[in-house]
Amino acid sequence: MFDRFRAPWSDRRAERVLGALASLVLVIIALMVIFVAIKAWPTLRHNSVVGWFGFGDEVDVQIANQVNGTSGTGGDAFKLNAGPLIYATILTTALAVVIGLAFALFSAIFIVEFAPPRLRRIIVPVVRLLAAVPSVIYGLIGILVLAPFVNDHVISDSRKRSVEYVVQLSGTSLLVATVILTVMITPIMIAIVTDALYSVPKGWKEGAVALGVNRWRAMWTVSIRAARPAIIAAAVLATARALGEGIMLSMVSGGRGFSPNPLDGITVLFEPLRPLAATIVENVESLNAPAVRSSVYAFALLLLFSSLMLSLGGYLAKQPMKKYGIRV
């Protein structure tokens, strides 16, 4: 019965089969978005958009009420102000991507342009390996090593006392979450940017150097310029990973629906928080309650929508670069 697959395929048949597969993927994604949106609808309907995205009563208390069915009846059962969770997601993701991108750019320039060949031969495979490390391992290191260290040696007792009437500082914090998240997403960015810089035509680099520009400037003005589409792609991919990271962040972020307050100065770094994905992970046990289920679907919808916007944003950002012949 497999004979018809073994025989050489005509292009026409290959086109139809591949087209069907690609369409299937699109259909599945569309169905998933629609399904999640329908499931998320109750919580979005009962809290106004401003209310749902905004800040209000403590979000952890609201979720606990949803779990226990103690938040009231009717629309009140769904009461949720997810602001702190959204804020936490934006904060950790943005910090990690910005720091990671800067780090990735400089590392990639070093690897491509300045590293001695012997070091390069070691560093490139190591970076690729790091990019493939499961995030839960980073989470484990964060919760077993970094968080206790921060708790014992970085946060002073007086600092703990200064905010104890609002929040308890225990090591798992914005700082640890950001550091671990940065470590997690940087290798993939280094790998992508390095590949992009390698593929910049040698003639451009040589041309710039021959004009009396040093290698650093040539890299910056010609190679990085030409590699901008890849840099954007790397940032988009890393942002998507950071947005969707649940397990690791639930381990190291402190697991409290708290909004770290920048007005606290340095202390803000040590305050706990909990991004959306981590919130989903932490509520898998209580999905029997319909209100919680709807809330969690709403978080998922928001994450889905963000990655969609992210891809679109990346695509739009690349368009102007096409004009001068940079390959996208």
């Binding site: 003639g203 030409a226 001068y324």
Partner: peptide, 9 residues
């Protein structure tokens, strides 16, 4: 150079 190498600008 041998190959024309204008920058992508």
């Amino acid at each position: 150079f041998q190959q024309p190498n204008p920058f992508p600008m």
